[in-house]
Amino acid sequence: MLGNVQVENDLQTNYLITEEQRKQYEKDGHLLLRQLATPAIVDCFRPIILSEVHRLNQETRPLEERDTYGKAFLQISNLWEQSDAVKPFVFARRFAKVAAELMGVAGVRMYHDQALFKEPGGGHTPWHQDQIYWPVDTEKTITLWMPLVHVPEEVGSMTFASGSHHRGYISKLEISDQSHKTLKQYIEAEGIPQIGYGAMAAGDATFHAGWTLHSAPGNPTSNTREVMTIIYVADDTRVLEPDTNARKNDLARWMPGLQGGDLINSPLNPVIYREDR
């Protein structure tokens, strides 16, 4: 138990989304929601997450010695698995219910979480599709992306290629200079609108679909862009037989013991929200 009644209540309290917002997400594959996390939630969990990132981070090289992916952010995955103190945040009913409603499903399970901290002077995040990594037999996947600090205009939200999720699997390219170049050319050649949300406050959040093309700018400021992400998959989804090494690795790490055709229900994929609960 957290011991903070206000925070515990906020984690369970519904965040109301409109039918217009749901339709906007369905159309665009991304959506911004202001103050999804209350100030009490952010004040409680930001120092805990920050402490865990510092404890678990193993990247000690200076930025100039890293490749493009390494310059983009410090990435710490599945904090909930490694820290009981972070778990109530990652398992928040408030967040998961929104994820289910935006996807139009009755329930969602955990895929995994990630802290993505873009350091001062950190590089851009290349264009990519998240779901090329995920061996899940569904299009009903969604990522919550939430800054824990104010993110100014020059750092901004991610940039999304609106409607690109309707095109499904566009490229097998993993996050790299090549993915950025190839997918940028594709987006421009196809005339796909590129949408960013600018400055975001701590506790604001974007949601985007697994197939939505997205990128993020570098960080020219002197402050770290502290972001927490949570990836959800629709309940009753089955494992897709992995067809790439990236998906084989994800299957072993995020759905241990499962194989193609199995229901996604490993100990690392608990139900986070279901309508009848």
Rank of each mutant, 00 (worst) to 15 (best):
H30C: 07
A202C: 10
A72G: 04
P39E: 09
F207S: 04
N249G: 11
R247I: 02
G261R: 03
D276L: 13
S215G: 00
L263T: 01
L116W: 12
G104L: 02
A40G: 14
W127E: 14
V271S: 03
D250I: 01
F117N: 05
R46P: 06
G70Y: 03
E226F: 07
W134E: 00
P152K: 06
K172C: 03
D204T: 08
M200V: 05
N14H: 09
S77V: 07
D67A: 05
V227C: 11
A202E: 03
F89V: 14
E139W: 00
G203H: 13
E241Q: 12
P62R: 02
T38N: 03
A216G: 08
S157K: 07
I230F: 05
L56R: 15
A161S: 06
L31D: 09
T221M: 10
R66H: 02
P193A: 09
E19K: 14
W211V: 03
T206G: 00
A199L: 04
M146S: 12
G191Q: 09
G210E: 04
L268D: 02
T60H: 02
R46A: 08
V151Y: 00
A234E: 14
L102W: 04
T13V: 15
T237Q: 01
H112C: 13
I175V: 15
L102S: 08
N57F: 07
S162D: 10
Q259G: 02
